[in-house]
Simulated scan of single mutants.
Amino acid sequence: MSQEKEFPMTLAGKEKLEQEFEYLKTVKRKEVVERIKIARSFGDLSENSEYDSAKEEQAFVEGRITTIENMIRNAKIIHEDASGDTVSLGRSVTFIELPGGEEETYTIVGSAEADPFEGKISNDSPIAKSLMGKRVGDEVVVQTPGGEMNVKIISVK
C-alpha cells in the first residue's frame, strides 16, 4: 500500500483548515443543495444554466472538502524552533536582494498553508528551497523562474 503524502503545517495553519472544513460541510454544502433545489424548480434541466452552475459549485465544494480532509488527516505539525539563526520550516526569514535591493520577509510553511499575499511561502518554492538550512549572514543564489537572484539573509525568527 502506498504511503500518503504528509502535509507539513503550523498548528495555526491546521486550525484554519479545520475551520474551512467545518464551514464547507455545515454551511456551504447546504447552500449549494438549496441552490440546486431552486434551479430544478425552473423546469427543463437541459437548458437551465442556473442548475448547471449550482452543480459545478457542488462539485467544487465536494472536491475541496475531500482535499482538506486528506490534508488534515496527513498533517505533520511543524514545531516552531524559536532559537537559532538557521532557516527552517515554520520560521520567518528576512533577506535583501543583492546588490542594494529592498528587504523582503517570508515565513516558510508547508504547501497546505502557503499564501504569498500574507508573506507565507511553500517549502517547495524555489526561494524556500534555496534558503532552507542557511544562516543569518549567508549569501545565497536563488533560482527563480525569472532567473538567478542573489540574496543575503538578514534575520531568522
Rank of each mutant, 00 (worst) to 15 (best):
S2I: 09
Q3V: 12
P8S: 04
P8Y: 04
L11S: 12
L17W: 01
E22G: 04
K28C: 02
K28E: 09
K28I: 03
V32F: 07
V32A: 05
E34C: 00
R35K: 13
I36G: 05
S41C: 00
F42M: 07
D44I: 06
E50R: 08
Y51W: 12
S53E: 09
S53Q: 11
K55D: 08
K55A: 14
K55G: 03
E56L: 12
F60Q: 11
F60R: 15
V61N: 10
E62K: 06
E62Q: 13
R64M: 03
E69W: 01
I77S: 06
I77A: 06
A82M: 11
D85Q: 05
T86N: 02
V87P: 07
L89K: 06
R91S: 12
V93S: 01
F95I: 03
F95C: 01
I96T: 13
I96L: 07
L98C: 04
P99W: 12
E102N: 14
E104F: 11
A112V: 08
E113Q: 13
D115I: 00
F117W: 04
K120R: 15
S122G: 07
S122W: 00
N123T: 06
N123Y: 08
D124V: 07
D124F: 07
D124Q: 15
P126M: 09
S130V: 07
M132S: 03
G133S: 01
G133K: 05
K134N: 09
K134M: 09
K134W: 00
R135H: 10
R135K: 14
G137D: 13
E139R: 12
E139L: 04
E139A: 06
V140F: 00
V140L: 14
P145Y: 02
P145H: 04
G147E: 05
E148F: 06
E148C: 02
M149R: 15
M149G: 05
V151C: 07
S155G: 05
V156F: 02
K157Y: 00
K157D: 09
